[in-house]
Design a protein around this nucleic acid. Structure first.
Lengths: 237, 237
DNA sequence: GTCTATACCACGATAGAC
DNA sequence: GTCTATCGTGGTATAGAC
């Protein structure tokens, strides 16, 4: 249950007149996205928010719990947006099953919209998120799993209808690969340099990304089953 | 150029009698993999290596340069192994182009072999690596780009021969997606929990992973071009 | 309840003795 | 090459003011 604020604020309120908790959240989001979690000190963070150093401890407990609060504030709406979009597509389709491409676009569009929102972190947020996925602290990964569980479960059902020939286990794996390609692609701002081919980031890039990623993932999801001969892992020589 | 050691050691040497630099590297690898980079202090690291606190600074400069040295020691051989395997496949195939599946297995097998090597980090190493990809410090990402550049370039040529109808740019994107699904899958130990389906990690899991991932990626690589209608990103309602 | 000042201990890094 | 001592900064805990 969310603790109640001391007073309700108007929407057209100045940032500096927000309550302490919101000011901390805004400053934390901005600084974590820009410099990363570890490189941001609570002293510079609380200075930027114009609050006392101990305020973070009082309102959020620890620096890591503050990080979780920052993530939740962004992930929760995005995943809800994904579910809403999927359900809208399903209503439009009536009784016919949705295509893989359509389901994928319900996953991709809210993520891309978030990555384009420069006012609130943009691509930097997704990089921080991708980093959190591989955090050595298990409770961070468990936290993220819980954040995504409902959305994933909902989309798994949709994909199962679109791909009835896949077993549940097979679909689980393929969805895992989809999430991987998606997370990596959205999080890796500089990863394209790996390919030794610079693609400048203009404003139409996201649509282009969507049009390339969706067919790639859809083809993988629709791939025929197990016609690959066993590949030797041993150092055969 | 690697700086020369003060004395050459025999292979059958006890770990505790190695020179200071090697002892630091071994302890750092073990601790970074287990607890992550930030959570590992130089004090506990140097204590585990039985060297003085200042030795890290003397031999490696900073904690981050030590981290790079740890990564290089593992990534360099893995990427070389990938190139060697690819060239072996190419020799076996003669003049005929390799299949996507075969090229993919040359990428996947050395990575899986590394992830199975429990003596040297195993899956933990790949998680640390995945984390480094999203590091907020640009020099870490540039370092990794340089580490991968040659291998990626080599595989890009191979894929271009297997998929001559793809433009260079299209292939760049698809390889990017491949690297994404691969990195995420290998790095995310707990990511499968996202799917609310526990798959116990037995010793045959890697072969199973390979047999599922390779067809998925191959199908994506071979997907037909641009037959997807433009998907609206705007909040159409 | 909310906020502040301040004290604590661990961290990475370095200077200088040996 | 190696060590000790020390510096500035980090996250956190708490006592007490409002």
């Amino acid at each position: 249950m969310p603790e109640q604020r001391p007073a309700r604020r108007t929407p057209a309120m100045d940032a500096l007149s927000q309550d302490t908790k919101s000011r901390i959240l805004d400053a934390a989001e901005s600084l974590f996205m820009e410099h990363g979690f570890e490189a941001t000190s609570l002293r510079q963070l609380t200075a930027a928010a114009s609050v006392n150093l101990a305020a973070v401890n009082y309102h959020f407990g620890t620096k890591e719990e503050l990080f979780q609060a920052v993530l939740t504030r962004r992930l929760d709406p995005m995943n809800q947006e994904r579910i809403d979009l999927l359900e809208r597509y399903e209503r439009q389709a009536g009784t016919r099953p949705l295509s893989c491409e359509k389901i994928l676009s319900a996953m991709l569009i809210p993520a891309l919209r978030l990555s384009r929102d420069e006012r609130r972190g943009g691509k930097d947020f997704l990089r921080v998120l991708g980093r959190a996925y591989a955090d050595p602290a298990p409770f961070i990964r468990n936290f993220l799993s819980a954040q995504y569980a409902e959305m994933i479960s909902r989309f798994k059902d949709a994909f199962q209808k679109a791909l009835p020939h896949l077993t549940k286990q097979e679909l689980t794996w393929r969805l895992h690969f989809v999430m991987g390609a998606l997370s990596y692609t959205l999080a890796g701002t500089d990863a394209l340099k790996l390919m030794a081919q610079v693609i400048p980031h203009d404003r139409d890039n996201d649509e282009m990304l969507l049009e390339r990623l969706a067919p790639f993932l859809a083809a993988g999801l629709k791939a025929p089953l197990g016609d690959t001969k066993k590949l030797e892992l041993a150092s055969g020589d």
